[in-house]
Simulated scan of single mutants.
Amino acid sequence: MIIQLEQSEDHPTLSQEYHRLIEMTEDYGLEHQKAMLYHNVAYLYLRNAEYQKASGFYKKSMDAREKSHPNYLGSLEGYVNALTKEGKTSKEKLLTLVEQGLDLSKSSNSSTFVHIFMMHYYFLSNVMDRYYEYLEEEAFPYFKEKGYMLLVEHYGVVLFDYYMEKNDMERANRFAGPVINKFRRNNQFV
């Protein structure tokens, strides 16, 4: 059912169906599935700029899991991201959450989340030169090496925009190439 849901672009229907599935997990006591659905509906709200709803469901997903659970870090990161985008939470609280995420990432040897929480740290600390330097030199190559294409495409666009703003066309083009090539491979129009 979730696979079918994710193929739809109809946000209201998706939201309604997620909530129906969450009720089903409550009826049957399926706690793991409920935590997963909380996370997925939170991501749906995040993608649709409903940050307050997103943060609420990420928090529910976190509360439904132990901190040692492999998916806890993903929900914590989504929570930080939604709260940051909403703009109502103090930087101090956000940085405390980021530090928790970094500690958990390091203790569980999750290099992916170490990189993501480090980027949150630099962003929230308003050290943007260091943010972009870290992204380009540390995080982006790691995401590329691991084959995390969603992250590679997203941060490729972030770096492209950054270098376009700096009028560094050579570096901007280096990050635009893979995204353009993806569409070149996927589309077969006349």
Results as ranks from 00 to 15, higher is better:
35 A>S: 12
35 A>D: 00
39 H>L: 00
40 N>E: 01
44 L>K: 00
44 L>Y: 06
50 E>H: 00
51 Y>A: 00
51 Y>H: 10
52 Q>A: 11
53 K>D: 04
54 A>I: 02
55 S>P: 00
56 G>C: 09
57 F>I: 01
58 Y>V: 02
59 K>H: 08
60 K>F: 05
61 S>R: 06
65 R>E: 05
65 R>K: 14
66 E>Y: 06
67 K>A: 09
68 S>K: 05
70 P>F: 10
71 N>M: 13
71 N>D: 14
71 N>E: 14
72 Y>A: 02
76 L>W: 10
79 Y>P: 04
80 V>K: 04
80 V>F: 01
81 N>S: 13
81 N>K: 15
83 L>A: 11
84 T>M: 02
86 E>D: 14
87 G>L: 03
88 K>Y: 05
88 K>G: 05
88 K>W: 03
89 T>S: 08
90 S>R: 05
93 K>L: 12
98 V>R: 08
99 E>L: 10
101 G>Y: 04
102 L>V: 05
102 L>R: 04
104 L>V: 02
105 S>Q: 01
105 S>K: 10
106 K>A: 06
106 K>S: 09
108 S>F: 00
108 S>N: 00
113 F>Q: 05
114 V>T: 15
115 H>A: 03
118 M>Y: 09
123 F>I: 03
123 F>W: 13
123 F>Y: 15
125 S>E: 14
129 D>V: 03
130 R>I: 05
130 R>S: 13
130 R>V: 13
130 R>W: 03
130 R>Y: 01
131 Y>L: 05
133 E>P: 00
134 Y>G: 08
134 Y>V: 08
136 E>R: 12
136 E>W: 09
136 E>T: 03
137 E>K: 15
137 E>N: 12
137 E>R: 15
140 F>W: 03
140 F>P: 05
140 F>E: 05
140 F>A: 07
141 P>E: 08
144 K>Q: 14
147 G>L: 07
147 G>D: 09
147 G>E: 07
149 M>W: 14
149 M>I: 08
150 L>P: 01
152 V>W: 05
153 E>R: 13
153 E>Y: 11
153 E>V: 11
153 E>F: 13
154 H>Q: 14
154 H>W: 04
155 Y>K: 07
156 G>V: 11
158 V>A: 13
159 L>T: 01
160 F>V: 02
160 F>E: 15
161 D>E: 15
161 D>Y: 12
162 Y>I: 07
163 Y>D: 10
163 Y>P: 04
163 Y>L: 10
164 M>W: 06
165 E>T: 12
165 E>H: 12
166 K>N: 03
168 D>T: 09
168 D>V: 06
170 E>K: 15
170 E>C: 02
171 R>K: 15
171 R>D: 04
174 R>Q: 14
174 R>Y: 15
174 R>M: 11
174 R>S: 10
175 F>E: 09
175 F>Q: 06
176 A>G: 07
176 A>R: 13
